[in-house]
């Protein structure tokens, strides 16, 4: 058996990024993800990489843009208020087709909010987030091992599709320690002929989101982006089903909320109630088709979230019969309660 180490989520993500070949990190401190920059600050110089603490999240994401255009595997991380600031650069990178990995270890909002874990940035993450018609891939790990594993995947997806990839965790996941087997590099490599490396023996290249001429150039760029998104939707959905086959009620939850929902499913089954859990690991692309198929013959579907019902809208969109879809959530950094989930599911009996 491979050796396990007890590792904090934030540390595990940073180490996995380095394993994935992330050579540059730019970030700005904010709780509850401060272990991430601290980890990179210590480790990146050891592997010949570069860590730089930026003067703001705006600067950090722009540094990420510069490093990405230079051809490096690059990452930044933040928490909710900082993620709002990073939207500027994310939109530019989406338009300029630049890959990068951005972790949002969410905390409660709006505004400064609190520091306890939350899932209230789902809309921001899955609807683009900044200005313009764009998407980012959004990965939603549920435990420390998965956080590390999906970080490796995040870098591959970013390079494969030339797209910003968001790791959407929450403060509990970032702060949680669990046994971890360090992930292996995927071994995949991606050529980056588009990188800005100097116009030697070739024509000059310019990377930009701006398209002013000819008249339809910007629409053309948008159509190209939409085509990429279509391919991603078709190929990159990841989801996990737990005891869904014979379930009367299927819970739908991701991240830390899914851990709690999972416990509720176990306890419900102990009481003879057939519940199951569907856990999206990609929030964009959302597993709409899988969800629709699985829930078609179920009596009830219950979305469990640490928000006022953001993913719930995607669940509603996916399910044919909206009347059987219910929602339970806690807000502002509060955790869903197993007891309350059980009570809600029992009320369907």
């Amino acid at each position: 058996m491979e050796e396990k180490i007890l590792m904090k989520g934030n540390d595990a993500m940073a180490e996995a990024a380095i394993i994935a070949g992330c050579s540059h990190y730019f970030g700005y401190p904010i709780t509850p993800q401060n272990e991430v920059p601290a980890y990179f600050a210590k480790r990146l110089p050891q592997v010949g990489g570069t860590f730089l603490q930026a003067e703001s999240e705006l600067a950090a994401i722009s540094m990420v843009m510069g490093a990405s255009a230079g051809g490096a595997r690059v990452m930044t991380s933040t928490s909710s208020p900082g993620m709002s600031l990073k939207q500027e650069g994310i939109s530019y990178m989406a338009g300029a087709k630049l890959p990068c990995v951005i972790a949002n270890i969410m905390r409660g909002g709006p505004g400064l909010g609190g520091i306890a874990g939350s899932q209230a940035d789902y809309f921001q993450a899955t609807r683009g987030g900044g200005n313009g018609d764009y998407q980012t891939i959004v990965l939603a790990p549920g435990n420390v091992q998965e956080l590390a594993d999906l970080t490796i995947l995040a870098f591959d997806l970013a390079d494969k599709y030339r797209i910003p990839v968001i790791i959407l965790g929450d403060g509990y996941l970032g702060q949680m320690s669990e046994p971890l087997v360090l992930p292996k590099p995927s071994g995949k490599t991606f050529e980056k002929p588009w990188a800005i490396t100097g116009a030697k023996d070739r024509d000059p290249q310019f990377i930009a989101s701006m398209r002013l001429t000819p008249e339809n150039a910007l629409e053309q760029l948008n159509l190209e982006l939409q085509e990429t998104y279509r391919v991603i939707r078709e190929n990159e959905v990841i989801t996990e089903c737990y005891q869904c086959d014979d379930a009367d009620t299927v819970l739908v939850a991701y991240g830390t909320a899914a851990r709690i929902a999972n416990k509720a499913v176990i306890k419900l089954r102990e009481q003879g109630i057939n519940a199951g859990l569907l856990r999206p690991k990609t929030l964009w692309p959302f597993p709409s088709e899988i969800l629709r198929k699985i829930t078609n013959d179920k009596k009830k579907v219950l979305t469990v979230e640490m928000s006022a019902g953001q993913m719930h809208e995607d669940v509603l969109l996916a399910c044919d019969d909206k009347n059987k879809v219910d929602f339970y959530g806690r807000l502002g950094g509060a955790l869903p309660k197993v007891d309350e989930i059980i009570e809600r599911v029992k009320s369907y009996e």
Binding site: L6, P32, I115, Y172, Q175, M176, S177, E178, P179
Partner: peptide
Amino acid sequence: HVSHIPSYGA
């Protein structure tokens, strides 16, 4: 199997 979550921050 183990897990550990601290209270954190301020």
